[in-house]
């Protein structure tokens, strides 16, 4: 035991090889081993949503996912959301326009969650957005702005 094992992770379309202990979470692998610090650690226990990433297109919490579990699956983080030329995703642009963040720490998780929320079809009304974005805490209190941004981006994605 307590031995590092080589794993391959597919992150934002790039293949990464790293050697980690089995207990290393996807979150710590991203932040400490790969320097992808856009995914945030707010609680490390699945209680805040700051570490939200997509695994095989589904929003999940990187803090409760072992890095080893993600092997063989496609991981998308905030760094992989904008297009290669820097063009912002509609959700990112809407967050900026609607001022849907202040300190910015919960923001990558909010945005990854919002992209999935729209894709899941759970952005049909303001109340539905509120419920399906409730797993991303924001202490600065940007919630009404986040709802506005998700609403705006959902319309843009649909059109």
């Amino acid at each position: 035991m307590t031995s590092k094992t080589p794993i391959h992770l597919d992150i934002n379309g790039h293949r990464h090889e790293l050697e980690v202990e089995p207990r290393v979470t996807l979150l710590d692998a991203l932040r400490d081993h790969l320097g992808l610090t856009g995914t945030k650690k707010g609680c490390d226990h699945g209680q805040c949503g700051a570490c939200t990433v997509h695994v095989d297109g589904q929003r999940v919490l990187a803090c409760l996912t072992l890095a080893a579990q993600a092997e063989g699956r496609a991981v998308t983080t905030i760094e992989g959301l904008a297009e290669g030329d820097g063009t912002l995703h509609a959700v990112q642009a809407a967050f900026l326009e609607q001022d849907a963040f202040q300190c910015g720490y919960c923001t990558p998780g909010q945005i990854m969650s919002a992209v999935a929320c729209i894709r899941e079809g759970h952005a049909g009304s303001d109340d539905e957005i509120r419920e399906y974005m409730a797993g991303n805490l924001c202490r600065c209190g940007a919630y009404p702005h986040i709802v506005a941004a998700v609403r705006q981006a959902a319309l843009e994605v649909a059109s």
Partner: peptide, 9 residues
């Protein structure tokens, strides 16, 4: 129950 992310996991 829980949150959308946790329910996906």
């Amino acid at each position: 129950a829980a949150s959308a992310q946790l329910r996906n996991m």
